[in-house]
Design a protein around this nucleic acid. Structure first.
Length: 853
RNA sequence: GCCGGGGUGGCGAAAUGGCAGACGCGACGGACUUAAAAUCCGUUGACCGUAAGGUCGUGCGGGUUCGACUCCCGCCCUCGGCACCA
């Protein structure tokens, strides 16, 4: 230990020590209880940013804490190394994506090591290496066997900027998740994963993780899945054999239907007679709607409702009424059945549409409190059921003007009408989802090739398992056009059919990179397995992940996919559980002021408000940067970057360090045993021991609650208490030296999760060899409740809820004594004399409240 | 529009229904120094008061309670998600 705190020296020393000692390596044979701590794996962009630093600091703090408490902690890292930017580099600068990626990984690995994150580096994996993506391909084949993958031509989300397909999750809000370009629609042959088969389990199994996942993530997933309970009803088309199927969640309003409205690409439009002028009108209308959609500026805004009467009629099977069939822009082909019954009286959209085109409005639901009267009134008057309404009445209520169903409550009517429809064969209860199947084909080079061969004789043939991996070629022409660069690599494309041995072609699309990240943390557990993606027994030991930490931005992408993937793996028999992670913590963004504005935005190169972690580590040391990042805000909150705050962290570390330096020799011969009951212990030492044990209790409890910022605060308080212990080391008595040693050792160990390097250095100076983690030692201190208890308490005394005095008492002072002391207090009597005492509330060890009148 | 999170000093924040503002940043004053930096000590929610002390104060309005930042009801603002989803 040097006299002064030199972070760069200490940090290098201990990083080397950890590496040599294999301090963070664990095996599944470890007899200690296991803990799997996982941070989201980074994309190797080339540079760590502050968001990464925050993510890894949180995970590292937890990992250290668990290790010090005697857990075998699995804490791995890897690289989400397939994807767009590598290919962009290839297109723009002619660099090979593989070289670009490997260089970036090498640089970022160096940054992580300088940060001193406690990873088991032997388990490092990268998605772009054949040993990894081989198993992506293997899972693809397993899903194909079970009918969970299929190919179809469909309108896909197309990013015009990146010239590739996006999944629904990746084009949420109508813009590309990566570059923000407005997404277009394009017809393509695509491979899909049937994630919709898992809509129910994805919802149901939320029960298992409710306690450990943030409410808002589950809510976002619930919204995304968009479960909706209702009914299908088939309307016969007049003068034709075809039917229009509609989906509704308000079957109770079906007698109020005054039209059937279909989407612009609905098949029934083919029924419009070819010789009629309407046929052209419909086609023109549909084309116009498509064009408007493609060119609109704000893709999320609602368009004005527009429609056209097709001249067709559909028959309401409940009352035989013939309703005009309209086509309109507000009905979407890819939700429900692509057609709705229009009930203007009870649906806002239908109401707006009916107003515009003067369609009749027929009220069939009344508010429960008025319903009886209304029904009788209508019956007496024999009223026309078309009524003027200022707006749609969308509440549930009592069904009226609806034949035999009149007088029933909405819920009952809906249920009974669905049963009726089913009995009669024209419909029935149904559940629909907003969730769509997961389109995984990408017209890109830098991804896992889809293991499929097309043979003119045998058709679509899966690559046999023993021929995996289908490896990416070394080179390709990167043009940035819409077709996969693989299509231009003859030696990749041309192959032979595994079934008939005749010449055949390989699929040239690659997989969505979200497949790689759906199961990477299973691979960490068994990273070199070349017979299977992982060993089932080893997985059972480590997974589910105990704590997962990452950004909120993946709430409906990665986190939904990985939950699906786990269930899929369960169904193909490679794991035995339903959910990948017991607890999830979503960290807040790291923001910085955008120069010349007063706006706090996420750090980014394009805004010029980025802060380079390397610069910070160089200036202050990794320990101080990490400590500050954890102290400045609770982990879930936004963290506004204010560099001045790091000074506070440095000051704190230096104070502790200096204290250890001053005391280290005096502590060498301090007693190992706590002073016995009879020994004469000074008040200062007693006070210090009290603070020490209260701090241990607090920090331990706050770790369990993930309150890392208050933890740091508690350690600062302990350090302040040490500072108030003013006796010089040479003058301190044996019991005092014991108290100081106890406090310092506790402080140093509890500091390790936040500032591991300097903690190791101080631990060594306090006379311990081999490091904090030597031979799996569990050095986390134990709080002694007796010592933590204060000898003397200040009890606040309130009069009518207002603080008027404090009295001192021991923790075991009885209620009666407290009450008497409070009532006798001079300052209290100023407020109680001459008043009637109504009540005295005494909360032992807490407060006294006297109620007077 | 629907769903979810959040509004506490100059700033980041703390507080199992029990002393609001711990801890830190910044600011101000002082010590040390030729000086500055660093370090150390002190002050720092607002208002009134020389002081002792008092009054107000956790987005707004109500309620429950001996007691509410915390629980309940109704609003306002703000951030995020979804959005013509039938």
């Amino acid at each position: 230990m040097d006299e002064k705190y030199y972070p760069e020296k200490i940090e290098e020393k201990w990083q080397q020590h950890w590496e040599r000692a294999g301090a963070f390596q664990v095996e599944s044979t470890d007899p200690r209880p296991k803990f799997y701590c996982l941070e989201m794996l980074p994309y190797p962009s080339g540079f760590l940013h502050m968001g990464h630093v925050r993510n890894y600091s949180i995970g590292d703090a937890l990992s250290w804490y668990k290790r010090l408490r005697g857990f075998a902690v699995l804490h791995p890292i890897g690289w989400d190394s397939f994807g767009q930017p590598a290919e962009q580099a290839a297109i723009k600068r002619g660099i090979n994506p593989r070289d670009w990626t490997e260089e970036n990984i090498a640089h970022m690995r160096g940054q992580m090591k300088r940060l001193g994150v406690s990873y088991d580096w032997r388990r490092e994996i990268a998605a772009h290496r054949p040993e990894y993506y081989r198993w992506d391909q293997w899972f693809f084949l397993k899903m194909l066997e079970r009918g969970l993958v299929y190919k179809r031509k469909s309108a896909v989300n197309w990013c015009p900027q990146e010239q590739t397909v996006l999944s629904n999750e990746q084009s949420s809000g109508g813009v590309c998740w990566r570059c923000g370009a407005v997404v277009e629609k394009k017809e393509l042959e695509q491979w899909f994963i049937r994630i919709t088969e898992y809509a129910e389990p994805l919802l149901d199994d939320m029960r298992e993780i409710e306690a450990g996942w943030p409410e808002r993530v589950l809510t976002m997933q619930r919204n995304w899945i968009g479960r909706s309970v209702g009914a299908y009803i088939d309307f016969a088309v007049r003068g034709s054999d075809s039917k229009i199927r509609i989906f509704t969640t308000r079957l109770d309003t079906i007698y109020g239907a005054t039209a059937v409205v279909v989407a612009t690409d609905h098949p029934v439009l083919a029924e419009v007679p070819e010789d009629s002028a309407l046929r052209d009108d419909v086609a023109r209308f549909a084309a116009r709607v498509r064009n408007t959609r493609a060119s609109r500026v704000d893709p999320t805004a609602d368009e004005e409702k527009e429609g056209l009467n097709t001249g067709l009629f559909a028959v309401n099977p409940f009352n035989g009424e013939q309703l005009p069939v309209w086509v309109a822009n507000y009905v979407l082909m890819d939700y429900g059945a692509g057609a709705v019954m229009s009930v203007p009286a009870h649906d806002e959209r239908d109401f707006e549409f009916a107003q515009k085109y003067s369609l009749p409005v027929r009220r069939v639901i009344e508010r429960v409190s008025h319903a009886q009267e209304e029904i009788e009134h209508d019956a007496e008057a024999g009223l026309d059921q078309s009524v003027a309404m200022p707006h749609a009445f969308t509440d549930y209520g009592i069904v009226v003007n609806s034949g035999d169903w009149g007088g029933k409550l909405s819920a009952d009517a809906s249920r009974e009408m669905a049963a009726h429809a089913e009995a009669k064969g024209f419909g029935g209860g149904a559940v629909t989802y907003r969730l769509r199947d997961w389109g995984i084909s990408r017209q890109r080079f830098w991804g896992a090739p889809i293991p499929i061969i097309y043979c003119d004789v045998c058709g679509t043939v899966p690559v046999p398992e023993d021929q995996l991996p289908v490896k990416l070629p070394e080179q390709a022409a990167f043009t940035g056009t819409g077709e996969s660069p693989l299509a231009g690599v003859a030696e990749f494309v041309n192959t032979t059919c595994p079934k008939c041995d005749r010449p055949a072609r390989r699929e040239t699309d690659t997989m969505d990179t979200f497949i790689d990240s759906s199961w990477y943390f299973f691979r960490y557990v068994d990273p070199r397995n070349d017979a299977a993606p992982f060993d089932k027994e080893t997985i059972a030991h480590w997974v589910p992940v105990d704590q997962y930490i990452g950004g909120i931005d993946h709430a409906v992408m990665h986190l939904l996919y990985t939950r699906f993937w786990t269930k899929m793996m369960r169904d193909i028999g490679v794991v035995d559980f339903n959910e990948p992670a017991k607890r999830l913590m979503t960290q807040g963004m790291v923001t910085n002021l955008v120069e010349g504005t007063s706006e706090w935005k996420r750090m980014s190169k394009s805004l010029g408000n980025g802060v380079d972690p390397d610069d910070m580590i160089e200036a202050y040391g990794s320990d101080a940067v990490r400590l500050f990042v954890l102290f400045a805000a609770p982990p879930e909150n936004e963290l506004r970057w204010q560099e001045a705050g790091i000074d506070g962290a440095v000051r704190f570390l230096r104070r502790v360090y200096n204290f250890v330096w001053r005391w280290r020799s005096a502590l060498r011969d301090a007693p190992r045993e706590a002073p016995s009951a009879g020994e004469d212990v000074s008040p200062a030492a007693r006070t210090l021991r009290g603070v020490t044990h209260r701090t241990i209790a607090r920090v331990t409890e706050d770790f369990e609650r993930f309150h890392l910022n208050t933890n740091v605060a508690a350690l600062m308080e302990l350090s302040n208490a040490l500072g108030e212990f003013t006796k010089r080391p040479d003058d301190a008595t044996a019991p005092e030296r014991f108290a100081v040693r106890e406090a310092l050792e506790a402080l140093v160990v509890m500091l390790a999760p936040f500032a591991p390097h300097v903690a190791e250095e101080m631990w060594e100076s306090l006379g311990h060899a081999g490091g904090l983690l030597a031979e799996g030692a569990a050095h986390w201190p134990q709080a002694d409740a007796g010592l933590a208890r204060k000898d003397e308490l200040e009890i606040p005394v309130q009069v009518n809820g207002k603080l008027r005095a404090r009295i001192s008492a021991t923790p075991d002072t009885s209620e009666e004594t407290l009450r008497a002391a409070a009532l006798a207090d001079e300052k209290v009597r100023v407020w109680t004399d001459g008043k009637q005492i109504v009540k005295v509330v005494v909360v032992p060890q807490r407060l006294v409240n006297i109620v007077v009148r």
